[in-house]
Design a protein around this nucleic acid. Sequence first.
DNA 1: TGACTTACTGTATATAAATACAGTACCCTC
DNA 2: GAGGGTACTGTATTTATATACAGTAAGTCA
Lengths: 205, 205
Amino acid sequence: MGLSALTDRQQALLDHLASFVAKQGYAPSLQEIAHAFGFSSLQGVKDHLKALERKGYVRRRPGQRRAITLMGPPRPFANGIPILGRVPAGTPQLALEQYDERLTLDTATLGPGRHFALQVKGDSMIHAGIHDGDYVIVRQQDTAEPGAIVVALLGEDATVKYLRRRGRQVRLEAANPAYRPIPLHGHVPAPKILGRVVGLYRAFR
Amino acid sequence: MGLSALTDRQQALLDHLASFVAKQGYAPSLQEIAHAFGFSSLQGVKDHLKALERKGYVRRRPGQRRAITLMGPPRPFANGIPILGRVPAGTPQLALEQYDERLTLDTATLGPGRHFALQVKGDSMIHAGIHDGDYVIVRQQDTAEPGAIVVALLGEDATVKYLRRRGRQVRLEAANPAYRPIPLHGHVPAPKILGRVVGLYRAFR
DNA sequence: TGACTTACTGTATATAAATACAGTACCCTC
DNA sequence: GAGGGTACTGTATTTATATACAGTAAGTCA
């Protein structure tokens, strides 16, 4: 089963919604919909939207203006990919209703600040689940709390390390014990923190 | 070149706009933008939007709620984050010229096909560097070559496993040897392949 | 016949959100 | 060292818009 059937008017309203969003980049207000259909009242629009929401074609945020999200197949995953919530047993195809959130790599997901990505070389952080070839997503900052995974510049090389406090010394440590820890101060060349690792991406070939 | 250059903050705001619209299907309100960036006032948002409008990146309808239209050619890397190539020695701040590529999670990066993401539960794939809480990005398909990491439906649970061939038997194997392999055929309940794992994302708190 | 759904009109109220004005701070550059 | 642009905070006001309640009318199902 997919989505339940729509009446002619509900379909017309859904079509109008889709074309409005495609054209303007934002959803119409209730009065704009009413005007487009020649309604003199808003209640008709509300009723139709309520039906569309009940049948799973749109989702609304109560009280918010123009907060209508179109659901359903014709929405490409242009930006971000849907996160599958529960997996219904024996479902032949994955129902759209299951998608609630979306996974993206942008400032909205990552929070404020400048970000960059860096491809990891070597296996010094393999015990932290960071493998050779992985991309770490880094929020640019020049300090970090102990315990954080940071990207530090050591001479000419950018390295991914834990920032750890040992007594009164703060140092960079690899997750792999085969690598020597590096004190943050009093080391030549002086390490410089480029940012904190906030995400990781790996592509499987 | 057509559109004039943007400041970092203006670019960040434009990226946020693009991803919000892509995710929600409608534009954000000024307060939502302010909240996303941690502003306590709306004037900053207004100023930035004004700059973006003056430079031709967006168009607004005065007085209307959420009436922000993104202009210009659809920028494919609107939501990506830059990948830092070489790290120049001793550079005080990271120069923009160093960024050559961008990391995105969209169909352009992932290739053709439908994709979804799934949050991994448990440590059955920890030896493959897939940890509890990681998101795997899955290309939807119902078969896969042996050697691939797949997401399979086992009864009501979606599990991440290697697809391996042993002799003439094809079976699902965990990377963690503590878990039993499951033959693809002749097992109850019958495993069903949902797709192949093509990527992995992890967020660090 | 009556209950139920769809498809609206009409009026009133509440509020989310845009606008406006005043001010601070930090660059630039001329 | 004055002037302009960027990047905000803080408070107040207005309004576009969502919501609520009370109806009417036609079709359909049982």
